[in-house]
Design a protein around this nucleic acid. Structure first.
Lengths: 331, 331
DNA sequence: TTGTAAGCGTTATCAC
DNA sequence: GTGATAACGCTTACAA
């Protein structure tokens, strides 16, 4: 495409004005059918591609939606993003993805960078941000959706679940099952939702007179090998642990694996619980006891609410998609 | 941000021209230190955010790189994307991600949409595209990198591995181990790299007088449950199968799981092999026999080559990152 | 139904 | 060093 063909080129070739071509491109029906067809043909021949840079500049807004998520490798956010993408496309919007790596500074930097593209809306995770980030979001005129955790007050819109309630429900379930010596293995110290779960889990144990024998939180990606290694270390410190709660299903699968290798019986020798409700973890010989969250739904709902808001439809300020305790065979 | 502050506003407030402010924003050192500091202060106070729409329009190119990948949920592409993102950021570029769902029509639509944002470069998967897609890519003046499979001729740049060679290597290994009755379980009929592996695997068996007892290819996401179910069906058709090659590690883990449940010994009753070399699959009680690919590296290299090309440095047209046979305990 | 003119907020270019 | 001016390619508002 040596010299890009522009509206002007098409207009000249079609013998009409730029505006008429512009109208045809955008499907404006005020243009007579005759000219519309004529221009459309010329456009096809010339391989004209509209320049949205110019279009959005003229319109003050783009059809891009800024999406800031902590991690792409984490299956949870991959699902959320899939939901966002699918739903956004229905409205003709495209997600522009930024990865924050659970780092609020990076979130801020990414947001600033994205705002300069004049997105039509912003989606980001959790309710905790830097002051600068908050200030930008509070002052923007475009819709902002904070997803995942909804305990607290969203800046504009919120979609997710109550992570503390979820963790408490799991703690209750485990205590009801009769376990007494609990361990906790968490990852990604900057994952605020996970941190909230950890605190709530521990607090719930304490309200009923129990406590954590050995809590450990690592600042690393919560993958299967990590879950294995974490449990190894925990057991070396507190070998009498009866039940271990993981911050994450994938890591919990690592724990299951270690037990298999050491010949420990689950849940008799050690009970294991996860968080997320990944399909994968339900395929273990003993399906994992865990909390199922509606990840994809969170993404879809966030996107849908943006579309609603952009079209002027009233939207619920906060949407709680809830969670579900999966009573597996691992605890 | 009721009325956005623009370059003009800042200029007025600082008592200089727009151009001077523009220079300061971009870190142009021709501006005297005095004015630079002064203007920087004013910018800070006013909370000015540059409008890249306008900037890129004026410059004819943006700092966005279009990235078209088949799937986000698939861990392989999540890693590739992570590599791309990290490396691109070093050069001040941002990825704009489009998901094609292994559908060439969607790839085409996404590409057209992205080209209208005047990206600085394009990254997409595989060498197979629609005619229209090819034509757009052949005619663009920006760098284009086709990743994953490199057997064949890239339009511009290519980074990946030879999937057929990898599949053949795996077939050889399995035959050398003495297996004779092979099954194959693949997913995502439109995944061209996977399809190439399937053909190559079968072809290699045939050159040595073997063949597939039961090949099955499903058009669904290759997750763990799918791998389990696929194997169930395969064994019901061909119970005497000795070794099953999976198109994908995650699905292979499903197969391992089924064996555990059925009490089948691996690899004595059934040998299982995967593809990708996910860390997760190496944490099974019996590490999976598989082919390790350098996913993250592919992303990094693709991005690095774009940066090189954009800065005028010569670049290898095709980069083969190779693969590695992991001799696990599952086959 | 179609066209004209004036921006949108930057940057390149060339004076000063 | 700094500034005026003309693009960049489109859309809005209004005129014909």
């Amino acid at each position: 495409m040596a010299a890009r063909t522009t509206l002007k080129d098409v207009a000249r070739a079609a013998g009409v004005s730029q505006m008429t071509v512009s109208r045809v491109v955008r499907g404006d029906t005020v243009v007579s059918l005759r000219t519309r067809e004529h221009v459309a043909r010329v456009i096809g021949n010339m391989g004209y591609v509209p320049n949205k840079l110019a279009g959005s500049l003229a319109q003050a807004y783009s059809n891009q939606v800024a999406v800031l998520i902590p991690s792409l490798v984490n299956n949870v956010f991959a699902s959320v993003l899939a939901g966002i993408t699918e739903e956004l496309e229905k409205g003709g919007y495209n997600p522009v993805v930024g990865v924050t790596e659970y780092d609020l500074r990076k979130e801020e930097a990414q947001l600033i960078s994205m705002m300069s593209w004049r997105p039509a809306a912003v989606i980001l995770a959790n309710l905790v941000h830097t002051d600068r980030t908050r200030s930008i979001l509070e002052n923007t005129s475009v819709p902002v959706v904070e997803i995942m955790d909804i305990r607290g007050d969203p800046i504009d819109l919120g979609v997710g679940l109550d992570h503390e309630a979820a963790a408490a429900a799991l703690a209750d379930y485990l205590m009801d099952r009769g376990y007494q010596r609990f361990g906790y293995l968490g990852w990604q110290a900057n994952d605020f939702a996970a941190a909230a779960r950890f605190r709530a889990f521990r607090a719930r144990l304490e309200t009923r007179g129990y406590g954590l024998v050995a809590p450990d939180v690592y600042d690393a990606p919560p993958d299967l090998p990590a879950g294995k290694k974490g449990l190894e270390m925990l057991l070396s410190v507190a070998p009498k642990t009866e039940a271990v709660a993981y911050s994450n299903d994938t890591a919990a699968m690592g724990g299951v694996n270690l037990c298999l290798e050491l010949g420990m019986r689950i849940p008799d020798d050690l009970a294991i619980a996860g968080f997320s409700g990944l399909r994968m973890a339900q395929c273990l010989p003993q399906p994992l006891t865990t909390i199922r969250t509606r990840r994809r739904d969170i993404g879809e709902t966030a996107a849908r609410n943006i579309l609603k808001r952009l079209s002027g439809t009233p939207v619920d300020r906060k949407v709680d998609l809830g969670f579900e305790l999966i009573k597996g065979l691992s605890a």
